[in-house]
Design a protein around this nucleic acid. Structure first.
Ligand code: NAD
Ligand code: NAD
Lengths: 210, 210
DNA sequence: AAGTGTTTGTGAAATGTTTCACAAGAAATT
DNA sequence: AATTTCTTGTGAAACATTTCACAAACACTT
């Protein structure tokens, strides 16, 4: 199926590309140069036909009888996902959760950098020493515009989540990773990914009881 | 579609039930007694036909011309999801992230209680005062078995995630909420829900660039 | 250089999910 | 009591995703 030249790619395929990318990174660390769809699929926890179908949306870069070049495939997937170069991200709401995220050193490796955080109380004493600047929420619009930030992590209380997101969008943010347990209203061209831990637990609860 | 008496319910339907439940909770807080599929669907960010189809998997509890009774529907959904009574959960790995999760007071309201946490260094000085006991990882098997814990939150480093999950499963855990960015290998009857923030960001990255 | 074995890429089929269209049931109104 | 209005519940259709089955392409061996 196609629309304006490019095939329409299932959302789940995009998620799986990220998983493949991580599996490929491990292979590369172990000095492995080529991998078959069978082996990579197993590492990723999917069927090999699905992996091949997923990759086929973007072109053909395997070698029949041999498999895929690990480096080449990594690069290709990175390029498609838009993480080939480091993406600037801001975080809003430096509380319990925000602080944990800020002190996580794993994002850089994956192509993202939290370049600043914003809070209504930027100067409140916090337990941890953080590398990134914590600024007042009023400085957010100018900062986001100036640094052309397109993505934000939202870890503010539920009560202010919608207004905060409105402000972020107004400043030019197009993608939001939301931790507040609320359905945010956003324009069509803005994307929200929700991380709701209670829902994940509830989901587990359902499937383990049935 | 049916298998052994009960209809097969789409995975996504289960996720949406959780969302409906939260919207219903808000309605109840606002003293609203009945709600139409149209209104509830809007609050949940889905189409009303989808909401009705989702509910239809479990029976028929609406009143035509009127809508659904908020309390009754809440109870019914809670019952289906298995969160009608408080579920005990344990957390393994009390680091940056684990500590943030432990100090979060939102889970009880949603039907879950983290009753204990485990770490290789339970006595390390931590910044926050936590209500739950932090125990040595060696005490985990006995504790989990004794309290019939079926769900665990995993926030240990990647390097020890697989062995930790093996131990949890051995002790009787059936559902795991995993924060370590790795594909865990588990038996068929055990369920893993992964929360991978880098993948969520990557996903945003793809959709906002295209 | 020919033959053998392996693995990709891909239409077609199967399966799964969402949306449509509308009959049927209940409340509200006259 | 009859009529109108509203809203649910549900087969059928449309759409989306996964799996199957196998031809085509390449590597490796002899
Ligand atoms: N902590 C967790 O483990 C956890 C788990 C699931 C969901 N959540 C959700 O994540 C969000 C944050 O949780 P938390 O535990 O870190 O809460 P928190 O109260 O510790 O932190 C919230 C932070 O947001 C800041 N803030 C408040 N209003 C603001 C505004 N208008 N603009 C900018 N900053 C503002 C506060 O100063 C505070 O630092 C909440 O919506 C919560 O429901 C948290
Ligand atoms: N912090 C974040 O924001 C964040 C974001 C995304 C993913 N993650 C992932 O979550 C996990 C935890 O991250 P973190 O930042 O809290 O790490 P952390 O190093 O701060 O915490 C890990 C904790 O696990 C404990 N631990 C180590 N081995 C253990 C074992 N065998 N049994 C029990 N406990 C053990 C350590 O003592 C430590 O307290 C990691 O896998 C990380 O990749 C974290």
């Amino acid at each position: 199926m196609k629309r304006n030249g490019r095939p329409i790619i299932p959302k789940k395929t995009i998620y799986r590309l990220s998983i493949y990318l991580r599996c490929l990174a491990r292979l590369r660390e172990n000095g492995i140069g080529t991998v078959s769809s069978e082996a990579l699929a197993k590492a990723a926890g999917v069927k090999s036909t699905q992996l091949r179908k997923d990759l086929a949306y973007f072109g053909t870069f395997g070698t029949r009888g041999l498999g895929y070049d690990v480096s080449e495939l990594s690069q290709k997937i990175s390029g498609e996902l838009g993480t080939a170069q480091l993406q600037p991200v801001v975080l809003v709401g430096v509380g319990h959760l925000g602080l944990a995220l800020l002190s996580y050193r794993g994002f850089e490796k994956e192509g993202f950098e939290i370049i600043a955080a914003f809070d209504t109380e930027p100067n409140r004493k916090r337990e941890k020493k953080i590398a990134q600047p914590i600024l007042g929420i009023r400085e957010m619009p100018a900062f986001v515009a100036e640094h052309a930030v397109k993505m934000a992590i939202l870890s503010v209380p539920v009560a202010v989540a919608q207004e905060t997101v409105n402000a972020l969008i107004k400043s030019g943010v197009m993608g939001i990773l939301n931790f507040a347990p609320i359905v945010l209203a956003v324009p069509e061209d803005v994307m929200v990914n929700n991380v709701n831990l209670a829902i994940e637990l509830e989901n587990l609860s359902y499937f383990i009881q049935g």
